[in-house]
């Protein structure tokens, strides 16, 4: 029983990272109907920005954290401006392929710049562990959980209660009608990319701290899993991404503990297949028909 709860805790802290990445997928999808496959690589860049902030600039955790978020926000906006904006009226598949191209560019650009060698992440947080009668919770896990929760609450407030959030929801509903309400659609899209990418950057740094190891291709697998998480919760739905991310993390932890860790990656895709078969709109999604 202790083992089960232990795995739940591990799963939730991993899952909150997936949730942070999944939020970016889902927000971008919600607003321009694009699965931004470069999103996992933005997360990787966030981890590297954090790495440089702490090793080269010798910054402590929080400044480094903010820098990773800000750096990724800018990167997300630049990618949108250069790669996606010119394709605003192109077919979806063109955008999708462009996103894969951007993904490769970031991955191999980073390998070119940094070599493919994994790097050891500095220890930014205390490594102390709490022991609750056999249940071990590390400070890092708590930290990840708290930071992820705070970010998610902030995002929720932003989307639900601010003018910018309302503009985002209006744009995701009907771009043209939103423009005719005086909303600058281009800047709302840009803002959405900035937000989503900042969350990915935060996740990147947290993972670096958690696993102590980063490399230029580290974004591929978490990127795909976060995508599955977004689909699981219902793509385009912000709370869905949070729920999906947590479920994915827990499923992965439980499977690797009680079945075999060989299946830890497979479980993500099994979930994807099952959800597409049973409830393609996702757990929180409503059945909709694509408008023609």
């Amino acid at each position: 029983m202790v083992e089960f709860f232990q795995q739940m805790i591990n799963g939730i802290s991993l899952g909150s990272i997936y949730a942070l990445i999944a939020l970016g997928y889902t927000m971008v999808y919600g607003i321009i109907r694009l699965i931004n496959f470069a999103h996992g690589d933005i997360y990787m860049v966030g981890a590297f920005i954090g790495f440089f902030a702490t090793t080269v600039l010798k910054l402590p955790f929080f400044p480094a954290f903010l820098m990773a978020m800000a750096g990724c926000a800018v990167l997300g906006m630049i990618i949108e401006r250069i790669a996606y904006k010119p394709l605003r009226h192109a077919p979806t598949i063109t955008l999708l392929i462009t996103a894969i191209g951007v993904s490769f560019l970031l991955e191999y650009g980073m390998i070119w710049a940094m070599t493919p060698q994994p790097r050891a992440y500095p220890n930014l947080l205390p490594t102390y562990q709490f022991n609750f009668s056999g249940l071990i919770v590390s400070v890092q896990q708590l930290f990840i959980l708290v930071v992820a929760l705070v970010l998610m609450v902030l995002l929720h407030v932003l989307v639900q209660y601010t003018k910018a959030g309302k503009a985002m929801r209006a744009v995701s509903y009907d771009k043209e009608a939103a423009a005719l309400m005086g909303i600058n659609v281009d800047s709302v899209i840009s803002y959405t990319f900035a937000l989503g990418s900042a969350l990915a950057g935060a996740a990147g740094l947290l993972v670096g701290v958690y696993y102590n190891r980063i490399d230029p291709l580290m974004g591929i697998m978490p990127g795909l899993k976060a995508f599955v998480a977004a689909v699981l919760g219902g793509i385009g739905i912000v709370p869905g991404a949070m729920v999906g991310g947590l479920l994915m993390g827990v499923a992965e932890a439980l499977v690797s503990a009680f079945l075999s860790s060989t299946y830890r990656d497979a479980v993500a895709f099994a979930i994807l297949i099952i959800i597409l078969l049973i409830k393609p709109a996702g757990l929180l999604g409503k059945k909709t028909q694509e408008k023609v």
Binding site: K163, K166, A167, M181, G182
Partner: peptide
């Protein structure tokens, strides 16, 4: 309706 009031609130 509130969304349309955007134009008067610069932020």
């Amino acid at each position: 309706v509130k969304i349309a009031f955007h134009r008067h609130v610069t932020y």
